[in-house]
Design a protein around this nucleic acid. Sequence first.
RNA 1: UCCCCAGUAGCUCAGUCGGUAGAGCAGAUGGCUGUUAACCAUCGAGUCCGCGGUUCGAGUCCGUGCUGGGGAGCCA
Length: 460
Amino acid sequence: MIRSKINELLSLESSLDKALVKGWVRTRRDSKSFSFIELNDGSCLKNLQIIAADTIENYEQIKTLSTGSSISVIGRMLESPGKSQKWELHATSIDIIGLATEIYPLQKKRHTDEFLRTMAHLRPRTNKYGATFRIRSELSFAIHQFFREKGFRYVHTPIITGSDCEGAGELFHVTAFDLGDIPKNAGSIDFSMDFFGKEANLTVSGQLSAEMFALALGDVYTFGPTFRAENSNTRRHAAEFWMVEPEMAFCDLDENMNLAEDFIKSLTSHILNQCSEDMELFAQFVDKGLMSRLENTLSGEFIRISYEDAVAIINQSGHEFEYELSFGKALQAEHERFLTEKHFDKPVIVYNYPKEISPFYMRLNDNDRTVAGMDVLLPTIGEIIGGSQREERMDILISRMEELGLNKQDYWWYIDSRRFGSVPHSGFGLGFERMMMFLTGISNIRDVIPFPRTPKSIDF
RNA sequence: UCCCCAGUAGCUCAGUCGGUAGAGCAGAUGGCUGUUAACCAUCGAGUCCGCGGUUCGAGUCCGUGCUGGGGAGCCA
């Protein structure tokens, strides 16, 4: 007999003579001649109510079932006389698969996120985390669907990269050395003896690789894990996180911003449409302002302002800020929050940043002061996307690298792409977990990733 | 890395002026009941985060370390 998923059974149109379900007991209540079992199999937020009559042969055993135990049930799906559910399963037989003892730590009450973080292996069995990770799965699918419908190709860029190429933050080193006996040459580490024959690290971005494929396949994207060894202790940083990075040939900054806005809106409406039951949980119990914020994101256009206009708005606002702002200084979190949450109360795209605070690959504007970079800022989240039109002119690219003191030899293949048939191209990176936080209202990044990696924390 | 806050029963917390530990939930047992965070009664449950100090006496005060949370920086 084929196992039915609970979400299928709960959407039945008429009763069913025989059904088989398997799942985990959420709670059980005894009545005079039968027992109510709330069963969840992860297919949806809702539980299936099971009626286990005392005529079932192993009824004495069934009465010992505690929260967390796994069972297999065969029975009839009938309309429920109770108020809280349409259907219930009247069991004809119940097999106990695995008992959970009374020390099972998840009680049928609300737990704090901090407590559940200490049992990341069990927390997906709770309502909130089950909903979170169903949405995470659906969001991943929505990303692939969005790009596929637009003719993008999915590129798998390397996880292990050679040397400190991107220069974005602290790197995790990758080595096959015996750490107790590292080969040295004149006092410094001899990487020629290591697995790759040179220094290797975990990737901090797939961008440079993706650019090579955009210049071959046209429109591409990457979607994979990214690693930063920064000692960041905040609710929106993790050492291992997922990033989505589209890269488009023959694309300028305006078209890049168009795609970024379209992308965020599409993902938002996809999740609202496809995960309405799970989203209802977040709207009710996690963040009362969630739905109005998401609707605000979908209605109308994002605000687009240049960096210089943003600086002017902030300085003329009359608001007190901890950090002073002038041309050439980076926007602080307080400035970003002011723009998205107070001044505009909308998602904001800030573009054309000063070249002094921008990486080498962003395209230099004609004024020679700014580059064609852009950040998408969301209320409550801050920066969710960073992107740019890339510098496609080889001579300017090289002089920018020299200005910033980068070693051209390390980037020979990147420069080479500008030597042969170079074209204007653009792309951006979106923090996947931050998008999850935006969509669910969950305020800590550790709670939207299955097994979070943060400084001093890798227990699972 | 810096600043602030917290750490007491399995969980969430209370604990007064420094005088030796308490509630709800969970668990166990019994009762009741088409219940639905079920209900009622009874019972058990503690390295008060660790170390050091002050004191006749420390959960409480001081120092220090660890862990967790919030904010900042960096960023996605």
